[in-house]
Amino acid sequence: MKTLFIVRHAKSSWDYKGIDDIDRPLKKSGIKDAYLMSKFLAGEIERPGIFISSSANRALHTALIFCENFQYPISGLVKSRQLYSFSDGYLVKTVKALDDGYSSAIIFSHDHGINTFVNKFGDIPIAHVPTCGVIGIQFQDKHWKDVKKGKTIMTEFPKNHR
Score class of each variant (00 low, 15 high):
K2E: 13
K2S: 12
K2Y: 07
L4T: 10
F5P: 06
H9K: 07
A10K: 00
K11E: 04
S12N: 09
S13T: 07
S13H: 02
W14K: 12
W14E: 09
W14H: 11
W14G: 12
W14V: 10
W14L: 12
D15S: 15
D15V: 13
Y16T: 13
K17W: 15
K17F: 15
I19Q: 13
I22F: 09
D23Y: 06
K27F: 01
G30K: 01
G30A: 10
G30P: 05
I31C: 01
D33L: 06
Y35N: 11
L36D: 06
L36Y: 07
M37Q: 05
K39P: 07
F40Q: 10
A42L: 05
A42S: 14
R47H: 04
P48W: 06
G49D: 14
I52R: 04
A56M: 09
R58G: 08
A59P: 04
L60Y: 14
H61S: 15
I65W: 00
I65H: 00
I65N: 00
I65S: 00
F66K: 00
E68M: 05
N69E: 08
F70A: 00
P73I: 02
P73A: 05
I74E: 11
V78R: 08
R81N: 15
R81V: 15
Q82E: 15
Q82W: 11
Q82K: 15
Q82M: 14
L83G: 06
Y84N: 07
S85V: 02
F86Q: 09
F86T: 12
F86N: 10
V92S: 03
V92A: 04
K93G: 11
T94L: 02
T94M: 06
A97C: 03
L98Y: 01
D100F: 04
G101S: 14
A105Q: 09
I106G: 00
I106V: 13
F108C: 05
H112R: 08
G113N: 02
I114K: 00
F117C: 09
F117G: 04
V118D: 02
N119T: 08
N119I: 08
F121L: 09
F121W: 04
G122N: 01
D123Y: 06
D123H: 04
I124Q: 12
A127F: 11
A127Q: 13
H128Q: 14
V129G: 05
P130A: 09
T131C: 01
T131H: 01
C132S: 15
G133N: 04
V134Y: 01
I135E: 07
Q138W: 00
F139W: 02
D141H: 11
D141C: 06
H143M: 05
H143R: 13
W144K: 00
K145Y: 08
D146K: 09
D146M: 08
V147M: 06
K148M: 10
G150V: 10
T152D: 12
I153V: 15
T155D: 14
P158R: 01
H161M: 13
H161N: 13
H161A: 08
R162Q: 11
